Simulated assay, not measured.
Amino acid sequence: MNPPYSEKEGFPQQRRMSDSDAPSYTPFRTTFACLSLHQSDRIRMMQFRPEDVSATRSVIQRHWTKGLQSERIYSASYEFKLSGYPWYGQGSDAIASRVVVREIFAYLFSQGWILHLSTDVSRSKYDKDSLIFRKQQTPPPPSEFIAITFNQGDRMRLIGAPNALLADVRILLKEMKLLQAEDWKDGKLQAWEYKMYGWPWHATGEETMTTRLLLLKLLETLESRGWSVYASIDQTTGTEDCSETDSWYVVKERGWVEGSAVFHR
């Protein structure tokens, strides 16, 4: 049967859909929350559950040996002020501050708070990233985290990494003729440091591409052991003359078997 046509325009007439014709669905609402780093010593949490705020307090107290100086409601957020200056990232604080953030990531991940994006929305000279999390109804499988940092002009640290991964990164740096020396930077916090030839984090000219190639090969090395980069964030206060490199937080599902798929969150 031919469709009815408009007498004036000669096109098929469109029947208006009634409410009864519309497909039924269940409204879906995503919950987002924000964790942000401020000044030299503050963490602010917005739209997290009270139990998540309480658990984060415990994580800070357990992994930041200098302790909490104070806490308060700050506008629409809850603020923790840490003793000392974790976001200046100098000396032993540079490692301990990454351990704190790593363990906060690990807790939130276990509760189904998955990092959605890290974003810089401030024009402040000394700003750091804001971390937006999305609540997942079913938490991901139990997983473990490590941190990777790019220090000074020629150092790379793996914090909390297993020996097998340390050995693989050593092989990579030797193959690229970059490894100058290596040793524990902090044995208690399991921070292993590689010192490289040249200045990969201050590279110029063609060396800038050697640095990018190193990152690609590092990602391949991580994935061969079941790890993937979960977050790359700016958490350190820079200076007027020098910006800071990101810190990588890397995740692997517990029980991962070599040769199986690596899931990227």
Rank of each mutant, 00 (worst) to 15 (best):
M1S: 13
P3Q: 08
P4C: 00
F11E: 07
P12G: 09
A22I: 14
Y25A: 15
T26H: 13
P27S: 09
R29P: 03
T30N: 10
F32R: 15
F32M: 15
F32W: 14
S36N: 12
L37Q: 03
L37S: 04
Q39W: 09
S40R: 13
D41W: 00
P50V: 01
A55S: 15
V59A: 11
I60V: 07
R62A: 15
W64F: 00
T65N: 12
G67W: 00
E71Q: 13
R72W: 04
I73S: 14
G84L: 11
P86H: 04
A94R: 09
A96L: 13
V101M: 14
F109L: 09
S110H: 03
I114L: 15
T119Q: 14
S124I: 10
I132Y: 10
R134E: 12
Q136A: 10
Q137T: 13
T138F: 05
P139D: 02
P141I: 06
E144G: 09
I148D: 00
I148Y: 01
D154T: 00
L158H: 06
P162M: 00
N163I: 12
A164Q: 10
A167Q: 06
E175C: 11
M176N: 01
L178D: 01
L179R: 11
Q180G: 06
A181W: 05
D183M: 13
K185R: 09
A191V: 04
E193M: 00
M196N: 07
G198D: 03
W199N: 12
A203S: 01
T208V: 05
L213N: 11
L214M: 15
L219R: 10
E220L: 06
E220I: 02
E223W: 00
E223A: 07
S224I: 06
G226D: 05
G226W: 04
G226P: 00
Y230C: 07
A231P: 01
T237A: 02
D241V: 14
T245N: 15
S247K: 04
W248I: 03
V250F: 05
E253P: 06
W256Y: 01
E258F: 04
F263H: 14
H264R: 03
H264N: 05
H264G: 02
R265L: 11
